[in-house]
Nucleic acid binder design. Structure first.
Lengths: 191, 191
DNA sequence: CGCCGAGTTGAACTGAATCAAGAAACGTGG
DNA sequence: CCACGTTTCTTGATTCAGTTCAACTCGGCG
């Protein structure tokens, strides 16, 4: 489970004791394609790190499936609001491609804060980054056209192209038909 | 400056020592209408609490003035990204109505974290709340019509109705003309 | 007063949604 | 490993919310 330590150390230098404490809150899980990491209605107590595979958080909005977020290899996922408020979530986390995830027990993890200040700092930085990402995404939805948003998305990580189109469409806030047309038009003039 | 303590205690119980430490990082400022609390290009080192008056953060997007956020009486405002990353901001904070603000020196405030765990916790909660608010706003922009967004906005705090229409429009991600039409149509059938 | 920015109203235009139908890809069972 | 049915993706025609551009009105301030 070293992957997660390597990931964390991008943001905050950790001592051996820090690392050991973190690893004690973690466990591994293999997940099949289509399997749910977390189901609707439950309260989030786990933060997932995607070792391999692809996941998404999604929910039903007026009966249609809406993808809120994609987690590719090396990303963290959780149902943020539920994890932060400890209220049941209306969202679920599903594996799009089978893979392996590291599960961080958030309650044990939060308990480390008193004894391990680096870990609390790390957590704060993760939270800040996620926040900034959301603010940026808000701006992009508000002021960019569907096409610009799609282009920005594949530029930032082209792995995302292997995700089924219908999931991508709802993530971008457009219909699958529109996304299909955007793709077709990019084929013709990809500049 | 008790107002800010009262505000904070909604989220985290504070000892007298906590309060004293917080107040030592605060100062007061009277601000005129149209005056900038923070100008473009500077790096954010202050978190503002609006004692009275109204403020907004805004920036120029392709030459047009875009309001990112409104802060009414009893709200906190800052240029989040710049405050968190300590990079210069392309945004500014302006007073829409003259009033009085409490300025929290964030660098001193962050320095309190080691000695005052309650304050670090408080900060984390504030960050979490702001994050959740942003996630909700993202969802509303993505899935609600302009009219629904406007209705939701005035429902949550009708003080916002006294803000000039053009600022409201860009906040909602629509043109002033569209907002004017929405208002006109609500006059006719306000149900 | 008269000007100027803010708000309103109208008409034409456009990006994306909707509805509908066909093509391709996918997986499951024989 | 193929055949069939289901799901996913594409393409077309139409509609609609919101934009753009332009002209006009109103209210406040010098």
């Amino acid at each position: 489970m070293q992957e997660i330590i390597i990931y964390f150390e991008q943001f905050q230098r950790l001592t051996d004791a820090d690392k050991k404490a973190i690893l004690a809150t973690c466990s591994l899980r293999n997940v099949d394609k289509r399997e749910l990491l977390e189901d609707f209605g439950s309260t989030s107590k786990i933060l997932y790190f995607i070792k391999s595979g692809t996941a998404r958080t999604f929910y039903y909005k007026d009966g249609t499936d809406v993808t809120e977020y994609f987690a590719l290899e090396g990303d963290l996922v959780t149902r943020v609001k539920s994890m932060l408020t400890q209220e049941p979530s209306l969202k679920a986390i599903e594996m799009i491609e089978e893979g392996e995830v590291i599960m961080i027990n958030t309650l044990s993890f939060f308990d480390l804060f008193d004894a391990f200040p680096n870990i609390e700092r790390l957590y704060r930085i993760l939270l800040q980054n996620a926040y900034i990402e959301t603010v940026d995404r808000l701006e992009s939805i508000q002021f960019k056209s569907a096409r610009e948003r799609y282009e920005a998305l594949i530029n930032e990580d082209d792995l995302i192209q292997k995700v089924p189109l219908k999931y991508l469409a709802s993530y971008l806030g457009i219909t699958p038909e529109s996304l299909s047309r955007i793709r077709a038009s990019l084929q013709k003039k990809p500049f």
